[in-house]
Amino acid sequence: MANLLSVNNLHKSFGALQATDDLKLNVETGTIHGLIGPNGAGKTTAINQLSGELFADSGTILFDGENITRWPIYKRAQFGLQRSYQITSLFPEFSVLDNVAIAIQATDGHSFRFWGKARKDKSLIDPAMAVLEQVGMDHLAHTPATDLAHGQQRQLELAMTLATKPKMLLLDEPMAGMGKSESHSMMEVLRPLKGKITILMVEHDMDVVFALADHVSVLVRGHCLVTGTPDEVRAHPDVRAAYLGEE
């Protein structure tokens, strides 16, 4: 299968700290790819370079046939590379529906429309409701985002990224801070995406990663130690030594 995302020789340092060290990573179209590694391995730094929040010092990022290494974040997002954040990032004063609607608006050409009332715009509200039904949050549509429970906020953020119909999702610890049942319902939202949207997922919960991912890469000190199927990775001696063995 073709690679949707391919990262080559990526380097990023903060002063003396080599946060990303010659990172090579390929993500096949339509797969869920897990990115694991001990604390400080540079997982979030890698995600930030892929999404455009940080620029790499050297190396290239190819996405869907384009070299996006120097693209600003909004351009990557428009091109179909969307992300979620480790710390939930929403529009707290907006209702759940408005949060999703503004995500849909982002894909609907430019927003230099100064006159029509956005809140009465069927072409935003109808697809937004459809996305909320997909993640099972339609009954919360008119609740302000700030009033949601933590798990619901995480789910809303995912819904926003899905609403843009991305080619690929970068999920930075989608289950962070979630309880067992919340994390379970998040799994149920993610599982059906398999084969439809390519996902690169950083996650600490190993059960989640090994249950969902087609491939797993292990990151240690900014470097990709090994990539393989969950079974291969689990069995790999270096991984056991560097990572799983520590716990």
């Binding site: 600003p72 909004y74 997002a77 428009q78 954040y85 990032s89 503004i102 982002a106």
Partner: peptide, 9 residues
């Protein structure tokens, strides 16, 4: 930041 990540300049 969220707006940028959604694709807004």
């Amino acid at each position: 930041q969220r707006l940028k990540a959604l694709g807004y300049n």
